[in-house]
Structure formats: C-alpha cells, structure tokens
Computed example of a mutant assay.
Amino acid sequence: MLVDSASLYFRAFFGVPDSMKAPDGTPVNAVRGFLDMVSTLVTQRRPDRLVACWDDDWRPAFRVEAIPSYKAHRVANPAKNIEETPPGLLPQVPVIVDVLAAFGIPRVGGAGLEADDVIGTLATRAADAGAGPVEVVTGDRDLFQLVDDAREVRVLYVGRGVRNLEVVDEKWLEAKYGVSGGDGYADLAVLRGDPSDGLPGVAGIGEKTAAAMLARYGSLDALMAAAEAGDPKLAPGATKKLLAAKDYVAAAPRVVQVVRDADLPVVDDTVPRTPVDHEAVVALADRWGIGSSITRLVTALSL
C-alpha cells in the first residue's frame, strides 16, 4: 500500500473539525484524521507492506520548465517556491512525521520529486518484481495513470472518503472515462487539462470528446499524427484545435506523467505490527492529545 500522504492529510484537515486541539491549543484535526484514515485502510485492506509517500518538492523544476503555469496559482512565496497552505495545517505536518517515525512506518520522498513520482517509482519496482498487488491510496485523479490490471496495480480513490473508497482498475476507468488503462488516462489528462494544477488542456476539447478521439486513434501520439496529416476521419474543427495546441501537447506529458524510475532508497516497508518506539508513541499521544487515534492505529497494525 502506497499512501499519497499530502492528499490524505489535506483531506483530513478540511474534513475533520478544527475544534480538535492539543492540550496547548494547537489544532490536531489533520493529525487525527490522517491517522484514522490509515487505520481504516490497514484494517480494510490488510497490506503486508506500507509506505507513506511524501512531497519533497510540491512543484518540481522540470515540470515548471515544461509548462510555467504548473501550480503557479498556488505559490505563496515565489522566491522560495513555497505552497500556499492553511496556517492551521502547517504545525500539524511535523507531528504526522513524528508519529510515522515512532510507529516505524517508512516515509519516502525524493529530491525534486512529488509524492506522485515516489508512488510511480515504488509501484513500478513492486510490479517489476512481481510483488503485487499494489494499492495506491489517493484523492488525486492524476495517479489513475498507474492502473494496470496485468501488473496488479490499482488505485484506492478516496474522493468520497476512506470509508467509501472506490477501487480503480481498468474496467472502472473504461466505465468512468471511456479510456483503456492507465496510459489512456494520462493521454486524456493531457487533452482535458486540469485548472487546479494550472494545466490548460486543449481549448475547446472536453473530456468526452477527448476520450472518443483517443478511443478511435489509440493514443495521444497517434491522434496528433492524424491531426498533422489532415486525416479526413478527424473533424476539421478538432484538427484545428489540436494543431493550435501543438506546443502544449508536446510539453504536457512531461508534466502529467509521473516519474517511474527515480533514484529512491530501498526501505523496509513491512507493516510494523507494534510501534518501533513505544515510549515515543506514548509521549506523542500525551503531548498532542491524540491518544484515541494512536490506539486505533496500534490496533489496526496488530491485527
């Protein structure tokens, strides 16, 4: 199980009341929500291996170089490339880091990489080694591109909450988006764009039209080749829109596609059945007033 950590703790912050505070008044709603979500996931899915994947760089330079608008609207401090984050969440992230360390749940990030790239690399490693199934936990649709039934990689999508998670496989992608597999979803994402990430997409081509064109031509590369060749099967209007966005379409895959071969450390990701540092766990529970969430995680891991 590969957990998109930021996706979960942001979701926890906005989904759990901020009335939950530590004894000193520091909010702990994101901490408690994150731990409770992990507990639920571990209880429901029973993974043998577990990694908390981390954003060491939320806006990598290689993506900004490809498309400068990438996440530009979310930059709080341009000089330091700092993401706009709710003030109440900032002090909680180090607490989550400390709790994961005390339990012995590995937290993996990489210089110049987003958590998506960490997940892509670790999922690929596991699939290459035949160590599946691999389950990616996220509220981010971008990671649908990793879905691969043959290699036993699927996404546990928590867009409607952890207790109502959707298991995303190739059949699900076909039914929901009309695309074939994770690669097809990545091509769709390029054409559709994503305003929340500053990706404009191809103007005038919506999700359904994009899916229909990809179904006909099989891939983004084949679709663009058809447009450039003036394929009569492609509507003139669509051809014009695709050619007008030619530079964007050439650059966007570098932004949309996750890295799958990053130089990441090999860690012991065996699920810890008991905390590696019991004293630290107790101290954190007392210090931050998160004893009930700690207890739930202890119970989940020990099952």
Rank of each mutant, 00 (worst) to 15 (best):
A150M: 05
V249K: 01
F10N: 07
L234P: 01
P236W: 03
A280V: 09
E174W: 11
D24Q: 11
D4L: 11
A115Q: 00
A252M: 09
D169Q: 07
D261V: 01
L199D: 02
L35H: 02
R125T: 12
T239N: 14
A252I: 03
D36W: 05
E65I: 00
G289I: 09
L89M: 08
N164F: 07
T85R: 13
G109A: 06
P133G: 06
P94I: 06
V136R: 04
Y248R: 09
A22C: 13
L303D: 11
A150V: 06
A22G: 08
K240I: 02
V31K: 00
K21V: 15
D55M: 07
A285S: 14
V134I: 11
E166F: 04
L2D: 03
A262E: 08
R163P: 02
P86C: 12
N164D: 12
V167E: 06
G206V: 08
P17M: 06
G15L: 02
P47C: 08
V136A: 04
L242H: 04
R273E: 14
V153D: 02
F34M: 13
P232N: 12
A222T: 13
G193D: 00
S7Y: 03
W54M: 15
V118M: 05
R154P: 00
A222F: 01
P272A: 08
G110D: 06
V3N: 00
P87L: 09
V28C: 08
G184P: 04
A131N: 11
R45L: 15
W54C: 02
C53P: 04
S39H: 03
G159T: 10
A175F: 07
S293Q: 04
L301G: 00
D183S: 14
K71G: 06
L146N: 01
Y185F: 15
A102P: 02
A225C: 13
L143D: 00
V134N: 03
S7Q: 07
A123M: 04
